[in-house]
């Protein structure tokens, strides 16, 4: 027996990313969370007109929610079940390396986010949204937000049982939806709650996107909050992730 050779790393990355995407598109419950809920929230709240929360306010908010639902909630739940089904440990014995696996996961998340952004921005324009900013700071915030939420999602998926991850990821999603300045402004919250919420990644992302897409500015505090969550989340996930459930 002459033995085999691994396929080129780029071929493996392509096949693995395609697999991640097909799996994402097949998860109906995750599509509800990533696509349907943000679109429905945007349409509903722009129709009912909460004070200070018109379409100019809502589009950056639901974009932040979309990032959170894909990079954090969806990725945490899917990865938690992959771990409990033993697939991650199993693929760890094949020529699929961990960097390639994690890159494929990230590309899968980014691809879903591109679809989300296209749909939400499209609906936003239909509803009369007029961005005034510069897309570059918004892009930086989206990347930082994706990194922060991915780190936290993988931290959860890599340490809790799959059922625990399912419950916790949905719970955190709800809390961050309410405390994230997503469909109503943080000013509606009591002062103490508001000052805590401003240090959380959801509010930093929605506030930062609102500033960059509304005035073209890049608020340093939001960038800092997201960067700290990203570094801490990814470092903790890398340290504690257990591939075998």
């Amino acid at each position: 027996m002459s033995g085999n050779a691994p396929a080129p790393a780029l071929t493996i990355l392509g096949r693995q990313t395609a697999m991640e995407l097909r799996l994402s598109l097949r998860r109906g419950e995750s599509l509800l969370l990533t696509l349907v809920i943000p679109l429905v929230l945007l349409a509903f709240f722009s129709a009912v007109k909460v004070d200070g929360a018109g379409v100019q306010f809502l589009v950056p908010g639901v974009l932040a929610l979309a990032v959170m639902s894909t990079a954090f909630t969806g990725q945490a739940i899917a990865t938690g079940f992959e771990r409990s089904y033993g697939v991650l440990a199993r693929l760890g014995t094949t020529p699929l390396t961990r960097p390639v696996l994690l890159t494929a996961k990230t590309l899968g998340v980014v691809a879903v986010e591109v679809v989300q952004a296209a749909l939400l921005v499209g609906l936003g324009y239909v509803l009369g949204w007029h961005p005034h900013g510069n897309p570059a700071p918004a892009l930086l915030l989206l990347v930082l937000g994706t990194a922060a939420f991915s780190g936290l999602g993988l931290l959860m998926a890599g340490t809790l049982r799959a059922e625990g991850t399912l419950a916790a990821a949905n719970g955190v999603y709800l809390v961050l939806l309410l405390l994230g300045g997503i469909v109503f402004p943080l000013t509606a919250l009591p002062h103490v709650v508001r000052s805590i919420a401003q240090q959380l990644p959801a509010a930093a992302l929605s506030h930062g996107l609102r500033a960059s897409l509304g005035q073209g500015s890049l608020p340093g505090h939001d960038v800092l909050v997201l960067a700290v969550w990203a570094v801490a989340g990814i470092a903790l996930a890398a340290r504690s992730f257990r591939w075998q459930a």
């Binding site: 050779a5 691994p6 992959e82 089904y85 033993g86 697939v87 991650l88 199993r90 014995t93």
Partner: peptide, 16 residues
């Protein structure tokens, strides 16, 4: 990794 084949006790796969 490309020279070894493994069948673990838990037959892992992507659930979907």
């Amino acid at each position: 990794r490309h020279r070894v084949g493994v069948m673990p006790q838990q037959p892992g796969g992507y659930p979907g």
